[in-house]
Computed example of a mutant assay.
Amino acid sequence: MDKYYSYAEFMKAVGKNQTKSEAEKLLNDIYLDLFLNHVHREQRKNSLLSLIDESLDQKDKQSFMLYTSELMNLEEEQKVNFI
């Protein structure tokens, strides 16, 4: 995961006399990578939310701060990736 694909790179790869199936394969790889990144992010987010709830229940300020910080970083990364 965490591969970087740009439109220009995709068009360059497609323009190198590749067959349609090779271009489709590249596009499918891009979509698969995006999907897996999304699933991984959502799983981590749900895990962090559970850990935050647990730390609140236990009144564990240190864990709460750690998990909320990680959640904020995860959400910030998501914003940056969509810009």
Rank of each mutant, 00 (worst) to 15 (best):
M1P: 06
M1T: 12
M1V: 09
D2K: 09
K3F: 10
K3A: 13
Y5C: 06
S6F: 03
A8P: 00
A8N: 11
A8L: 10
E9R: 05
F10C: 10
M11S: 09
M11N: 15
M11H: 08
K12M: 08
A13C: 06
A13N: 13
G15T: 05
G15N: 14
K16A: 12
N17F: 07
T19C: 05
K20L: 15
A23L: 00
A23W: 00
A23M: 01
E24V: 14
K25G: 10
K25M: 10
L26N: 10
L27S: 08
L27V: 10
D29Q: 15
D29C: 04
I30R: 02
L32T: 15
L34W: 11
L34E: 12
F35Y: 10
F35P: 03
L36N: 14
L36C: 09
L36E: 09
N37A: 09
N37D: 14
N37L: 05
H38A: 10
V39D: 13
V39P: 00
R41N: 08
R41E: 09
R41Y: 08
E42A: 12
E42H: 01
Q43L: 12
Q43D: 13
Q43F: 03
Q43T: 08
K45D: 12
K45Y: 02
N46P: 00
N46K: 09
N46Y: 02
S47G: 11
L48H: 01
L48D: 04
L49H: 05
L49K: 12
L49D: 06
L49V: 15
S50F: 01
S50W: 00
E54F: 01
L56Y: 03
L56D: 09
D57C: 03
Q58K: 15
Q58Y: 04
K59M: 10
K59W: 02
K59R: 14
D60K: 01
K61G: 05
K61M: 09
S63I: 02
F64C: 11
F64A: 09
M65S: 11
L66W: 00
Y67E: 02
Y67L: 00
T68L: 01
S69L: 04
S69M: 04
E70Q: 15
E70N: 09
L71H: 03
M72L: 07
E75L: 13
E75P: 00
E76R: 09
E77G: 06
E77M: 03
Q78A: 11
Q78C: 07
K79Q: 07
V80Q: 11
N81M: 07
N81Y: 03
N81C: 04
F82N: 14
I83F: 14
I83M: 08
I83G: 15
